[in-house]
Design a protein around this nucleic acid. Structure first.
Lengths: 331, 331
DNA sequence: GTCTATACAGTTATCGCTAAAGAAAGGCCG
DNA sequence: CGGCCTTTCTTTAGCGATAACTGTATAGAC
């Protein structure tokens, strides 16, 4: 910039304004500056700009696991919205651990991100983390998981609805002894479990307590949980799994036991990961529109970042959609 | 920092040095400063620091597709190495497109990353992109793909070896009419094809030209390609697929045609994606140690960033490893 | 008693850019 | 003609740190 100013015999400030299309500059000067800048191959220095403006044009995206294609897809959605706006996205992996998440967010804040999108591993909204975020006035939007007791922007799917949709589908397919491999004690796990119970109650079914077993997020946990379920008597004839990886693990266990999916045991997952169709038995699931979640969260965050005062927390629910494949089709 | 200096009656510089453990400061003063900094909740401003030191402690990772779990795993490996060193990692998605990649790298450079790790979508090493990187003296390490005619740091697996390993395995399993669904015209695709040919030649087999069909990176392309192969007469009895997603799509096509994998047709992929074990037929593959690639590339880049002069380009080959599962086991 | 080395702290000048206020030149108005 | 806008550009002061010097003591050497 200094060189441009010297060469053109104008002040540094004129160059700065011209490059930013500031209204103070005449059309003629602006053009001269832009042209010369191009000739010199001028590249603005973002660091200096950030220091002066206190904006970094960086947003942080904190997710529990990049390997889970659901979050990879969310990340794509976020990128699609933010990149055209000139923002850079930094993805942080919390590995499903609340402490790691907290540390990662601290790091992002230390680097002065302009905003955050978080699929939180915190079970509780009263965690110090959210107070820190509030205190520092960093706009943030939660996605997928909604820590209990937290008034914050949120974009996700109603997990209870997912549970209802999946369970009612199994009932329609003729299942009467429906089990559930539940997820962890966060909003998604709890909501889906609640939906599972509500759907059964609504149809006058009730499952014995041992029909609800605990899994985590991954396929090994689904495999283990299903082996436990298979030992029960009477054996369940339908299983709603917390998510698709868990369901994939579960299918593996059922097949290994020499049983048929869906005839001996129907299985449905949630999330509609991209390889669901390629599994042992193509997996029925409830789609969560992962990339739409990402895009919507990005839009919402963008709004928050522009607004001077934080708008009141907004919750956006994306409707889930049943995707029936072979693993649950019995009629 | 200013506050600390004022409160403690020392100069700003003393505080700065104390916080950085500079040797100029006495143990006593340093402790006073650190303690007071903690009390005030001081957080260093990375932006200002970057402006002054010309180092951002950010490295860019450019990959073709986050959804492909191979690259997600690489990313994890990179993060595991760099995060303890205080670096932030920015992941960019090139969507397998050379122009997008170029633009993404420009953006990363504009943000002054300290270094880059790139799984390039460029077929050709003479691309202007690499000249730009050289000109700007940004240390970078290529992974997975090695654009033709480029002397640069590289970490990956010898793709020809992958092709040989996979093809010889099929031969050992009794396949005699071995086809190949080849990848795109980049080093990985070309190398694996070459390995496929070399292994056949070595064992005195020769496949008709129509046994080599083109795929891309994804499972739909594998599905299409396999349908083409199934129309051939004589039908192949073994297929080596460019990568696991392609192989998964191929398996789907074979099963739909009412044939058995592996008995009518053995299939092997490459990459060992995490869900290989959960597919219709558990997929045999050649493992590429994805996270090790990430870690190794990170180490190498870290070295380059410390060195004042760029060391001569180094190529590191990680040995591939055959993983036999059901899709190819015929004896 | 002078000189030099060492340990510690302070000054000054950036890093590259921007916000905010100031100034020059011209036009319009009563 | 003087006052008051407008338009266009310039000056002045940072943003929050650091690099590279420039001082002071104090201690020990000769």
């Amino acid at each position: 910039m200094k060189d441009i100013a010297r060469d053109l015999g104008v002040s540094l400030m004129t160059v700065s304004k011209a490059l930013r299309n500031h209204s103070d500059i005449s059309e003629q000067t602006r053009k001269r500056v832009l042209k010369h800048a191009r000739q010199l191959g001028y590249q603005p220095n973002w660091i200096a700009r950030s220091l002066a403006t206190r904006r970094t044009y960086v947003v942080g995206l904190v997710i529990p696991d990049l390997m889970h294609s659901f979050f990879a897809e969310v990340a794509k959605g976020v990128a699609r919205k933010f990149e055209p706006l000139g923002y850079q996205i930094v993805i942080s992996n919390s590995e499903e651990k609340a402490e790691v998440e907290e540390r990662q967010i601290e790091l992002l804040l230390a680097r002065s991100v302009d905003g955050l999108i978080v699929a939180s591993a915190q079970a509780n909204g009263r965690s110090g983390l959210f107070q820190t975020l509030r205190a520092r006035k960093v706009p943030f939007v939660l996605i997928d998981r909604l820590p209990a007791g937290l008034g914050a922007h949120y974009v996700g799917v109603n997990d209870e609805e997912i549970g209802v949709l999946a369970t009612e589908h199994l009932i329609e397919q003729g299942c009467r002894r429906i089990a559930h491999i539940r997820g962890p004690a966060i909003s998604t796990g709890i909501g889906r479990l609640r939906g599972y119970r509500r759907a059964q109650a609504k149809h006058g079914l009730k499952a014995p307590p041992e029909y609800v077993v605990s899994g985590r997020h991954d396929d090994p946990s689904g495999y283990e949980a299903m082996r436990d379920l298979l030992r029960l008597n009477p054996r369940p004839d339908g299983v709603f799994c917390y998510n698709d990886p868990v369901a994939a693990g579960a299918i593996k266990a059922v097949l290994e036991a020499g049983l048929n999916v869906p005839h001996d045991l129907a299985i449905i997952g949630a999330g509609n990961v991209h390889y669901s169709d390629l599994l042992r038995v193509p997996l029925s699931t409830v789609d969560q529109s992962s990339s739409l979640i990402g895009e919507t969260a990005a839009d919402l965050l963008a709004q928050c970042m522009e607004a001077k005062t934080q708008p009141t927390p907004k919750r956006i629910w994306i409707p889930p959609r049943l995707v029936v494949r072979e693993s649950s089709r019995r009629i």
